[in-house]
Amino acid sequence: MISLESVSKSYANGVPALNDVNLNIEKGEFVFIVGDSGSGKSTLIKLLLRELTPTSGRIIVNDYDLSRLSRRKIAKFRRSIGVVFQDFRLLKDRNVYENVAFAQRVIEVPTRQIKQNVPAMLSLVGLAGKYKAKTRQLSGGEQQRVALARALVNNPPILLADEPTGNLDPRNSWEIMKLLEEINKRGTTVLVVTHNREIVNAMRKRVITIRKGVVVSDEEKGEYIDED
């Protein structure tokens, strides 16, 4: 489902962000990517979303070879990936329903289908009763649920979560992780980039540790490894 072959990425100033990374993530897996600030986690997410292209190596996501993907096909590729961010990235001037429906509108889903899909997705994340609320009226946990609903409403086979609990308290963090686990059980491949040691150690999932742009460990039912 996701494959990285000898992927390296250096920025214009010559600083290497990732160095010879090889990874293989199968369909239906739940994977944590962990590492300290500046380790290359965010660069990895950007490469997987085709916001960046690798300096060398090959990335295949959902059968799309991202190194050869033309600009015109990027939109179609991104529809196969749901993404949530630490800062939620919601449209603050719109309500909960509109934020989730927005994801379907921009990929031209018929209105009738949107009216069925959005309430169903809001029910899944537990926000069916708040569909009219403006996002700025919601708590951090609720905003991340809206972001999650928006990421999933188009039914993508892969979900990328970049520090999804970074702005949340422990209780909300756990609720979001439970939701991600539930989504994974339904068949979605979930890739979570996080700093949260407690969650990583408790969930006993596959853990890939990146340090200074290099994969230093990749363990099934792994734990958060601190930098020495």
């Binding site: 979303l49 939109a75 590729f77 991104r78 529809r79 449209l91 927005f102 921009v106 990929i107």
Partner: peptide, 12 residues
Amino acid sequence: AIMKLIGAKDFV
């Protein structure tokens, strides 16, 4: 940026 990451075409 959100529209692009969701997969909206440039025209949309």
